[in-house]
Write a protein that binds this DNA or RNA. Sequence first.
RNA 1: GGGGAGAUUCCCGAGCGGUCAAAGGGGGCAGACUGUAAAUCUGUUGGCUUUCGCCUUCGAAGGUUCAAAUCCUUCUCUCCCCA
Length: 409
Amino acid sequence: MNRALEVLKERGFVQQCTDFEGLSRLMDEGPVTFYVGCDPTGPSLHIGHMVPFFAFRHLVQAGHHGIALLGGGTARIGDPSGKTEMRKLISYEAIDENTDRFIAQLNRFLGFDGTHARTANNKDWLANLNYIEFLRDIGRHFSVNRMLSFEAYRQRMETGLSFIEFNYQLLQSYDFLELYRRHGCRLQIGGDDQWGNIVAGIELIRRVEGAECYGLTFPLVTTSDGKKMGKTEKGALFLDPAMTTPYEMFQYFRNVSDEDVGRFLLMFTFIPTEECRRLAAGKDAELNRAKERLAWEVTALIHGKEEADKALTAAHAAFGGEGDVSQLPTVEIERSRFEEGIGVLDIFVTAGLAASRSDARRLVQQGGASINGERVMDEKAVVTLAHLQEGALMLRAGKKRVCRVVCTE
RNA sequence: GGGGAGAUUCCCGAGCGGUCAAAGGGGGCAGACUGUAAAUCUGUUGGCUUUCGCCUUCGAAGGUUCAAAUCCUUCUCUCCCCA
């Protein structure tokens, strides 16, 4: 088998492929142009989007040419795949703005140089599509009966599927065709929920151009307890540091389940396969260390080594060791308020460690609140200047959530 | 267009005139145990005060009633059947 393909397989990226042998042969012959699509429906990419882009990097490393296709056009419609509800329509302006942000984030990760890695936006060919022509040239190749048999649409038959969403598959197929025509793109990769759309695109190209293209999908990454990977209480793990701090991202990976360490190392880092296996095979403390390595690597890939180091040292500081406290989540409170005295309940709320005073009260009652490492038992306790150590103090809610409070003038 | 069913607290889902801040499950949070893991057990889970209590919530707006999530009217949305 082709080496690059084999690497993907070893690392757990492969879920389905339309024709393994054929693709392998094609890749052996020389650089293959491939693409991954993603619709800019939100203000930031999140970690779940990244699986195909990790594969993207592996492929580019092996000499193939990747296109990151931004769905500036398809985002106007909404993909029903894997969704149980209809998507809200997003304004064109928002989509364009999201697109720019996605590109910037991807550029950091992939390094677009215009040949080995480049971007495209399907808005360029979809936005001004002529409806009649599209139906004549493209629409006639699609069978409604066939489409309805696809799992993605069948599920939606229960809850309702609007006509515009139903057309998504045609547009995505058309994307593949366009990229084939413009750039000789022969392979589409993506999450397994895209399987139906990918296959449809391949068939379209075969009918219209008589050419053979390929599709490769990746498993939908879930955590060992069956949840979608990268979901936190606050939502997804975003790449935008303003939405998810590097520290939060670090902590997410630092806290993954034992069973997930191996898989995540393989998929979300570029540590050699052998080493990933070795790291994940460790027991107890060793395995625990592997999680730290995983967290650092991922954070470094997304936010850079510097941020990863900061997150690491902050984590050490937060969890009973030496480290740089200044990188922990921090809030500022004016000196005058310390002079007056701040109720514990209030300070936990302002620090964001409790949702409300009632919540803070519960926290204290259950023994989960501490200041500078001292458990707070009295909900009426008052925080004053005396609590400050070098102008700051450390609040802790439970074992994992910490916040540093800095006194300002 | 006609007929039917339904909208409950983060989610699912009971409740069908007072005893309802609303059962149960899930999830979340906290404690114990630990390895910043999992599993398990315990507690907790609208807000304000914690002593009594008060306030806001059961799709939206009105109405009936001493009293409504529970009854009536209108509206919005969803699903199902027929066209």
